[in-house]
């Protein structure tokens, strides 16, 4: 059996978790998780040990907006090892003002199954 210390990233509490798991045969089996203050901790830890995911946050260039960039995020967490693939798609993208919060700017970047959505309202620049 293996043990691993982890910092839960679900909320600002940042609980120090200790996970016990078996890593033989049909993939990783979590046997015990301790140190969590809430029930989200064990769920997160199991996910983190089997296939870690993260929400990717960045920004996309906007033409004709009151700001040159609109902040964006993935609408669901993506596999951690695909963060830089998602970033590549974000950097290549461009949009036009106006932009509304929640608007889908990129569909399924890098085949992840998530969308890149705007997190800020951008109005058209009045020149």
């Amino acid at each position: 059996m293996s043990k691993k210390e982890m910092t839960c990233i679900v909320c600002p509490n940042g609980c120090q978790l200790e996970a016990s798991f078996e890593n033989s045969g049909p993939g990783l089996q979590v046997t015990e998780i301790t140190g969590h203050l809430c029930e989200k901790g064990p769920v997160w830890a199991e996910q983190e040990l089997t296939h870690p995911v993260r929400t990717v946050i960045s920004s996309v260039q906007v033409d004709g907006g009151d700001l040159p960039l609109v902040s964006v995020r993935t609408d669901a967490p993506v596999p951690r090892n695909m963060i830089f693939d998602v970033m590549k798609a974000i950097k290549a993208a461009k949009t036009t003002a106006p932009v509304a919060i929640g608007q889908v700017l990129i569909r399924q970047p890098a085949g992840t199954g998530c969308n890149i959505i705007a997190t800020k309202n951008i109005s058209t620049r009045i020149s």
Partner: peptide
């Protein structure tokens, strides 16, 4: 915060 050490640095 501890969570930022994990998700911003360790990652």
């Amino acid at each position: 915060l501890a969570r930022n050490i994990q998700q911003c640095l360790h990652d």
